[in-house]
Simulated scan of single mutants.
Amino acid sequence: MTPALLLSLALSQSPELELELHYTATSLEEGEDASKRTLDTYDFTQFEPSAKKADLYVGVDEANLRQSPGADAAVVTTLPLGAPVRVLERGKERLKVGEYVNHWYQVEYTDGKGAAFKGWLFGNTLTPFRLEGDFDNDGEQEVATVVMSSDFKIRVRVLEPNVKPPRRVSSVDITPAGQGYMSVDGGSAKVTLVAGKTAGLALVQVDSVPEACSDYSTTYVSYTVPGGKKGVLGKAKLALEVAGLADPPNHSSYKVSFQPKQQGLTVVRTNVEEDESGKEVKTTERTKYKLADGVFSEVKASGATAETKP
């Protein structure tokens, strides 16, 4: 089985992974001023109008829905993190608002009482990724979203539903893979929910896999509240980060296996490279991790086993 196939199998845990969010710009030379970037050096996910009731979500908290496509336009209403919206129209021009480059989108939102609102949101606030789960095991459902930040990070936010704004959201940033290989800042994200019964606690799984020869990664994000108290804002954390490489003739893949009853997991890493004689050398290493306070820490690594093929 090839490393590419191993990677495909490892990432095919959920149909949600078919969705992708990306935000990049051409890398700057050392000391180069970011303000000199032109709008056409940015590449980002563009959303299309939809006939569905709602197919996207608000990825930030307290997003202002505006009457017209402008940062100073009147506010129609304010939307919470995770609010479902339907895209009616995408603005024709890409614009810079604050530190973001994107389009304005006209959207429709229906609140919990059935009242419908139409207005405009800037594209950086929208995401296809909204996850709901009891991340902190307090019996209540939290909401998590994933967006790309203005400084080209993958930002995971978790909202505690029974805490009032403005301090009801905890966030953590992930560095996208492939930046050095592709000479860009930023990258892509594919997202799925790992259930608590699978991992011992619910996790947001973020895969950053460029469509080119480069490094790639899987990151798990946890959300914990000390003592499991209800109505208290917890903390989103990087529970585990694992990385691989697809750069022929060198390949590195990984497989994560959870042991929920033991509150741990095992990562099996497989590296394939050529030696000086052109022979393929395959090494495998198994590492065990233990879960504590929402973070998986290494407790034991086996010695690497090597196999050489002509």
Rank of each mutant, 00 (worst) to 15 (best):
V299W: 03
E285P: 01
V194E: 09
P226G: 12
V295E: 00
P248F: 10
T283P: 01
G228N: 04
V232M: 09
D247F: 03
A189M: 05
E298F: 04
V272L: 14
A292F: 05
Q262M: 02
K229A: 13
R269Y: 11
V267R: 07
Q263K: 08
A243V: 06
L233D: 12
V194K: 10
E285S: 10
A246D: 13
G231V: 14
S302V: 10
T198F: 06
N250R: 15
T287Y: 09
E274N: 14
A239D: 00
Y220T: 01
P249Y: 09
S302Y: 07
A202R: 14
Y216R: 05
A243R: 12
K229L: 14
D207K: 02
K255H: 07
S222W: 06
P249V: 13
V221T: 13
V281M: 03
Y289A: 09
K282F: 03
E211S: 07
S297A: 11
T283W: 14
V204L: 00
S214I: 00
K288W: 12
T283F: 11
L291T: 08
S252Q: 11
E241L: 08
L238C: 08
E276S: 14
K229N: 03
V204N: 07
V272H: 07
T198I: 09
T266H: 09
K279R: 15
N250H: 10
V204K: 07
T224L: 01
S214R: 02
S217I: 05
V268L: 12
A195P: 14
A292Y: 04
G231R: 15
A202N: 14
G244R: 07
L238E: 06
V268G: 00
L203C: 05
D293T: 03
H251I: 11
E241W: 00
P260M: 00
V256Q: 02
E276T: 12
Y216W: 07
G227N: 12
V272C: 06
P210A: 05
L203S: 08
A236C: 13
A243Y: 02
E211T: 11
P226Q: 14
S302R: 07
V242M: 03
D207S: 15
E273Q: 15
G196K: 03
E274S: 15
K300Y: 13
E276L: 10
E273L: 13
